[in-house]
Design a protein around this nucleic acid. Sequence first.
DNA 1: TATATATGTAACTATTCGGTTACACAAATT
DNA 2: AATTTGTGTAACCGAATAGTTACATATATA
Lengths: 112, 112
Amino acid sequence: MRRDVFQAIADPVRRDIIQLLSQKTLSINEIAHQFDVSRPAISKHLKILNECGIIDIQQQGRERYCLIRPKSLIPAFLWVEQYQSLWEEKIDSFEAYLKQLQAKSKNDNKNE
Amino acid sequence: MRRDVFQAIADPVRRDIIQLLSQKTLSINEIAHQFDVSRPAISKHLKILNECGIIDIQQQGRERYCLIRPKSLIPAFLWVEQYQSLWEEKIDSFEAYLKQLQAKSKNDNKNE
DNA sequence: TATATATGTAACTATTCGGTTACACAAATT
DNA sequence: AATTTGTGTAACCGAATAGTTACATATATA
């Protein structure tokens, strides 16, 4: 199965977990209490996040604390960032296409 | 079914399609030719990208051209970007935790 | 020592995903 | 008019997802 940062952040629950852990290290139960889904479901999400290197889990007595490893998000950031210049041109290629059509139509009128 | 930008970019084929379209507008067949998977499979990916607003499809004769709408990626960018300060502290909380442990151990030694 | 707590995990389920092949159909070409 | 080309889509398939309940186990507490 695919197991990378893009797949990890695709799920909204996992994004919420990342959000929580960015504020504070939490035990697995503490995390699970914040969600409507069952603890085993959260456990599965944490396992995935752990396998993707997004969190690290530290045993402490009978509790296991989850710590975020924010650097793991850098690849996702870099991937999206490469398109920043495109959207910062303030014009989608769709809009560019429309503009081009308008220009073409203007030109056609000229030639009538 | 969930249909958002995070789910859209979770698949590597879709990320490759986005990459292609960021260079150049292409027809559906032109896109399909660049991949090993079948044309219907690519069609499905394009449908998803379209439903997420990442691409726009323009009919032209019997061909359909796909145009990227880069602004649609901004939400994903913003989501990842909010953690930039965390990873730019050049220290994961995991590493911070280890440092803390080391400091603690040093302190314990002092108190022996 | 008995009990409560924190967690893992197995077994199961329904749904979605990503792919396929086969076929339909409209537009372009011959 | 017949053929080729570009595309949509239905039907199917196996694997992955996201969840559940039930049970096991280790640690902490009374």
